[in-house]
C-alpha cells in the first residue's frame, strides 16, 4: 500500500470516526433538551384534580411528595387537605363521612377536619396543607419553608 492511499484511508477513517463520535454526543444532548412529559415538578404544590371530581362529603387520598395526603370536601363544600399519615404509628388515615371526621383504622384514632387529634392514641395533630383554586382545579401546597 503506498503512503498516499494509506493516508487517504486513514483520513477517511478519522473523518468517519469523528462523525460517529459527534453523533454519540449530539444524540443524548438533543434528547436531553427535549422537555420530559411531566414538564415541571413543584414539590410544594400538587394538582389534586377538578373540584367536580369531589362529591360533597367525600375524600380522596393523593400522593404528595413521598407521603400520602387526604383531600376532603365536607358537607358544606369546604375543602380540607391534610397529611394522611397517622401520627401514632404511621397508618394511612381515611375520611368517615358519617361523623365528618378523619379516622385511623389501626387504633381508632380520630382527627377533626382541621387535623386536630381529638380521640384515641394519636399524640399530635395532622399537618394541614394550604388549598388554592385555579381554573376549577384544586391545588394543595405546603406552607413556604426557609
Amino acid at each position: 500500500m503506498n503512503k498516499q492511499t494509506r493516508k487517504k484511508f486513514l483520513d477517511t477513517l478519522l473523518g468517519g470516526g469523528l462523525i460517529a463520535w459527534l453523533g454519540a454526543i449530539i444524540y443524548p444532548v438533543s434528547r436531553y433538551l427535549v422537555p420530559p412529559r411531566t414538564p415541571d415538578i413543584n414539590p410544594d404544590s400538587l394538582d389534586v384534580g377538578k373540584v367536580s371530581d369531589f362529591q360533597t362529603n367525600s375524600a380522596k387520598i393523593v400522593r404528595f411528595g413521598r407521603k400520602p395526603a387526604i383531600v376532603v370536601r365536607d358537607k358544606n363544600d369546604t375543602f380540607h387537605a391534610l397529611t394522611a399519615v397517622c401520627t401514632h404509628l404511621d397508618c394511612t388515615v381515611q375520611y368517615k363521612s358519617d361523623t365528618e371526621q378523619i379516622w385511623c383504622a389501626c387504633h381508632n384514632g380520630i382527627y377533626d377536619l382541621q387535623g386536630n387529634n381529638i380521640s384515641g392514641p394519636p399524640p399530635r395533630p395532622l399537618t394541614q396543607f394550604k388549598i388554592n383554586f385555579k381554573n376549577g382545579k384544586i391545588f394543595i401546597s405546603r406552607e413556604n419553608m426557609a
Binding site: P28, V29, Y32, P35, P36, T38, I41
Partner: peptide
C-alpha cells in the same frame, strides 16, 4: 436534581 436524573432523558448521564 432528582427530576434531572429520573425524568429528563439522559439527564442522569449529564
Amino acid at each position: 436534581v432528582k427530576f434531572i436524573i429520573t425524568k429528563v432523558q439522559f439527564g442522569w448521564l449529564i
